[in-house]
Each structure stands twice: as C-alpha cells, then as structure tokens.
Simulated scan of single mutants.
Amino acid sequence: MFTFLKDVKLKTQLLGLSWITISFFFLVIYISFKYFETAQKESSLQISNAVNTINFVNDQEVTQLWVIRVHYFRSLQDNKYRQTYTNALNTWYANVNKSFKNDGQQSTKERKMAFDAYYQHMRQTETVLDNYANGLISKNELRQWQDKASMLGMDVVDKLNLFTTELSDRVDDSISNSEEKFSSLITMFSIISFLFSVLMLAISFVLSNSIVNPIISIKDAMLKIAEGDLSSKQPEDNGSNELAQLTYSINQTVDKLATIAQGSHSIAENVSSASLALTNVMEESTTNVQIELEQIEQVATAVNELSQTATEVSLNASNAEKATVKHH
C-alpha cells in the first residue's frame, strides 16, 4: 500500500501533505462562502420582493382605497363628488387589475375576490344615491346598501392586512431559512472537516510509518553492525527517495566491511601459519643447537682427555729420561 511513496522525496511527501491539508480547508471555506453568499442572495431577493410587494400594495391598493373611501363619504354629502368618486373607483380597479400579481397564495386570491366584490358593489354608488334622492328606494334600503358597502370595505381591509401579515411571515421564514441554511452549512463544514481530519490522520499515520519504520530498521542494523554482525542487510526497495538511498549505502558499507573482515581473516590465518612455521623452525634450531652443544662438550671432553693423556705421556717420558740419566 502506498508503494509509490518510496519514489517520492521525504521533503516532497511532507510538503505535499501540508499543501493538501491547506488547500482542502481553503476549498471548503471558499465553497462555504459561495454557498452562504448564494443563500444570502436568495434570502435577500425574497425579502426584497416581499418588501416591494408590501410597498406596492400599500401604494396601489391600500392608499388608493382610502382615497376612494374619502371620495365616497364626500359623495354622500355632496352630489358633485359622485362622478369624481365613480371615476376614481374605476381608475383604482383598473390599476389593480393591471398590476395585480397572482402568486398562487390563497390570501392573494381572497384579496382579489374582495376587490372584485367591493368594486361591483361600490360602482352602484351613484345610481343608488340618485335613486334614493328620487325616492325610488327607501332610507332603510339605502342603509342596508351602505352597511354592505362598509362590510365589503372592511373585508378588503382585512384581506389586505392578512396579505401583508403573510408577507411579513414569509420574510421571517426567509430569514429563518437563511439561519437554518447557515447552521446546516456550519454543521456540514464541521462534518467534512472532521472526516477530512480523520483521512489526513490516516494518511499521516501511513506516511509516518513509511518514514519511521525504515529508520528503526536501519538503526537496528547499525547496532548489529556495531556488535560485529555483518550478516544483517536491509531489504532494498526499488525506490529513489532518501531512505532507499540510505538503505543502499548501508548495504554497500556492510558488503565492504564484510570483504575487509574476510581479507583480515585470511591475513590472520596466513600470519598464524607463518608464526607456526617459524615456531617449528625455532624449535628445530634449538634442537640443533643442543645437539651441537653436546657435540662440542664431547669434543671438549675428548680434548681434555687427550690433554691429560699427553701430560701423562710427557710426565712418563720425563721420568724415563731422568731414570736413564741417573742410570748412566
């Protein structure tokens, strides 16, 4: 496993691991930032749309509705405002229909229905008031019509309030969703960081073993070499990093030391053989010297004996000469 590491320099391995770790964290931070930025933009867009919708509803529907209501109450008091009220009502309803945005929400549909019902009822204002002025309807019928107009107006106001409340709730939901997304992002970042840390720890463990184990093996081999054991050689991998080169150098050193030791052993054997031969020669020389000494002693003994014999012969001759002289 990870046999390719034996061809990678140790410095490259360490720097590579650091680079991968730093790059990963920068990548995670960049992705997280982009994800958060996108979520924030979506949330901001939703909030902006909601705010724009609320402002639009306030400007085009709520404010104009209250203007129409003012014209309505004026028309009840003065006939000359009736046509003005009718024109303002028609203009308001036309603008509402033109700019109305159906977002599919139930409150939006109910708001449109309330507008339609209010307009269909209030468009009869000028006719109803003229009929009442001409005695065609009773005061009670006019009051009933006005009560219904008030009820429909309040219904429009209620639907508008409900709509704006729902928009506010949507804004709150959008903010909550952004917070949840951010929280999820933090959680996801934490999980990914933890998993990556576990992965980096495993890779670091493998990488450290690929560095430390050969060093320990080399240390043990050097101890054996220091004790004189030249038979322990390191297995050589087909690698090119510093540890592979160190292993090769140690094995080369062991081989050279073994060769030197073997040569020294041969020399020692030769010296021992020469010493043994010299000892034998010395022993033979000693023996020969002893033999020669014995022979010299024998010669000296013989010489002594000859000298004594010669002395005796000389003495005997002298005695014989003296005897002869005395005889004569």
Rank of each mutant, 00 (worst) to 15 (best):
V67N: 11
V51L: 10
I68A: 10
G104N: 03
N90R: 11
D78T: 11
T86M: 15
G104K: 01
F56D: 11
V70T: 14
L65M: 11
T86R: 13
A94I: 11
H71T: 06
F73Y: 11
F100R: 06
R69M: 08
Q83N: 11
G104C: 06
Q46D: 12
V51K: 06
N49E: 00
Y81A: 12
T86H: 13
L45E: 05
Q60V: 15
V96D: 14
T53V: 08
R82N: 12
N102D: 11
N102Q: 02
H71D: 12
D103A: 06
V57T: 05
N58C: 00
D103W: 04
Q64L: 10
R69K: 14
A94M: 09
N97I: 15
I54E: 02
L89W: 04
L65V: 10
V67Y: 10
N49P: 00
I47M: 03
R74E: 03
S48L: 03
W92F: 05
V62I: 07
Y72H: 14
S43D: 03
A50Q: 00
N102F: 03
E110Q: 05
A88M: 13
V96H: 12
E110A: 13
D103P: 12
W92E: 01
E110L: 07
L65C: 01
T108Y: 13
N49D: 00
F56I: 07
K101Q: 05
N87Y: 12
E110S: 14
V67T: 15
Q106S: 09
S107E: 08
T91R: 13
T86G: 05
E61Q: 12
N52E: 07
Y93T: 01
T84M: 08
V57P: 02
F73R: 12
E110C: 02
T63Y: 14
A94V: 06
E110N: 04
L65N: 08
W66V: 11
K98C: 02
F100E: 02
K101D: 02
V57M: 06
